[in-house]
Amino acid sequence: MLKFVKGYMESIEGVATYPMISLLIFFVFFVILFWWVFTATKEHIKEVSELPLKED
């Protein structure tokens, strides 16, 4: 089974770029997430954290 998958993956042109693209997307997402966490105001975080407890 592994030989089949390895042979199939080797037949795809440019297959080595897909892991690099997914790593880049992963890295960019978490950099943006960390930036948002560190720049968010305390009031906004408090408001969002209380949303599940509020009754309409």
Score class of each variant (00 low, 15 high):
Trp35Leu: 05
Thr17Cys: 05
Phe4Gly: 01
Ile21His: 09
Phe4Asn: 04
Lys42Trp: 00
Ile32Arg: 12
Leu2His: 05
Leu24His: 13
Gly14Lys: 07
Gly7Arg: 02
Ile21Asn: 09
Ile32Cys: 14
Ile12Gln: 10
Lys6Leu: 15
Tyr8Ile: 04
His44Met: 09
Ser49Gln: 12
Thr39Ile: 03
Thr39Gly: 00
His44Arg: 10
Ile45Gly: 03
Leu53Met: 07
Phe34Trp: 11
Phe26Pro: 07
Tyr18Lys: 11
Phe34Val: 06
Gly14Glu: 02
Ser49Arg: 07
Thr17Pro: 00
Met9Asn: 11
Leu24Pro: 08
Leu2Pro: 00
Met9Phe: 13
Tyr18Glu: 01
Thr41Ala: 04
Asp56Gly: 13
His44Ser: 15
Ala16Asn: 13
Pro19Leu: 03
Phe27Ile: 03
Tyr8Ser: 06
Ala16Ile: 06
Met20Ala: 13
Met1Asp: 11
Thr39Phe: 05
Val37Asp: 02
Leu23Phe: 12
Phe29Gly: 07
Lys6Ala: 13
Phe30Gln: 11
Val15Phe: 09
Glu13Asn: 14
Pro52Lys: 00
Lys42Ser: 03
Leu23Gly: 08
Phe30Tyr: 13
Ile12Val: 14
Pro52Tyr: 07
Lys3Glu: 08
Met9Thr: 14
Glu13Gln: 14
Lys46Tyr: 02
Ser49Cys: 06
Ile32Lys: 12
Met9Val: 14
Lys42Asp: 03
Pro52Cys: 10
Phe34Ala: 14
Met9Glu: 12
Ile32Pro: 00
Lys54Asn: 03
Thr39Glu: 01
Leu53Pro: 02
Ser11Asn: 08
His44Phe: 12
Phe34Ser: 11
Met9Gly: 04
Ile12Tyr: 10
Ile32His: 08
Val31Trp: 07
Gly7Lys: 00
Trp36Val: 11
Gly14Pro: 03
Glu10Tyr: 02
Val48Trp: 09
His44Pro: 08
Ser22Trp: 12
Val5Pro: 02
Gly14Thr: 07
Leu23Ala: 15
Lys46Gly: 02
Phe27Tyr: 14
Thr39Met: 02
Ser49Asp: 15
